[in-house]
């Protein structure tokens, strides 16, 4: 019996807006090596970018003394991405964005990141760190999504 194929790639980002693009490019490169179609790679890029932006802005609260960890675990037919920050994790998930409420000024035009992550990957969970920090979001995107 052959050993399961697994490859881990780790990236550490500064807590600075814009560096989410480094994680995005890395995730895209790994997904391309795994054979993901371009459309799914674009989904992954947006989901990873939004997860990193949340980690930079809300998890690490823009504190440049902290960093954001990104761990990509490539399995045989799925790619798992963990984005780790030093925040306490999210207390509750925000409601799905409502464009009508946004247009009428009843809802902040921002606040779509978590919705996009959920909508674009196959699996997502937000995990609060047991020590009040080292919280992470775990995303999974599957290679055979079209076949399901």
């Amino acid at each position: 019996m052959s050993e399961p194929i697994s490859t881990k790639v780790e990236v550490r980002l500064p807590t600075r807006m814009g560096y989410e693009k480094v994680a995005m490019s890395t995730a895209a490169s790994v997904a391309k090596l795994m054979g993901f179609p371009d459309e799914r790679i674009e989904d992954l890029k947006t989901a990873v970018a939004e997860a990193c932006i949340n980690a930079i802005e809300h998890g690490n609260r823009l504190n440049e003394g902290l960093s954001v960890g990104v761990v990509l675990q490539a399995g045989a037919d799925e790619l798992e991405v963990k984005v780790i920050d030093d925040g306490t994790g999210i207390k509750k998930q925000p409601a799905a964005p409502d464009i009508d409420r946004k247009m009428h000024g009843e809802e902040d035009p921002r606040g779509m990141g978590m919705f996009l992550i959920q909508a674009l990957v196959d699996e997502v969970e937000w995990v609060a760190g047991a020590d009040g920090k080292s919280s992470y979001v775990r995303l999974v995107i599957r290679l055979d999504k079209e076949a399901q």
């Binding site: 989410e20 693009k21 947006t46 970018a49 939004e50 932006i53 464009i99 946004k102 247009m103 000024g105 902040d108 035009p109 921002r110 606040g111 779509m112 990141g113 996009l116």
Partner: peptide, 19 residues
């Protein structure tokens, strides 16, 4: 090439003002 959720929010703000 790249639009994130903050960028989408700016487009929505533009649409609010335009409407």
């Amino acid at each position: 090439d790249y639009i994130n959720s903050s960028g989408i929010a700016l487009v929505i703000q533009l649409l609010i003002e335009a409407t």
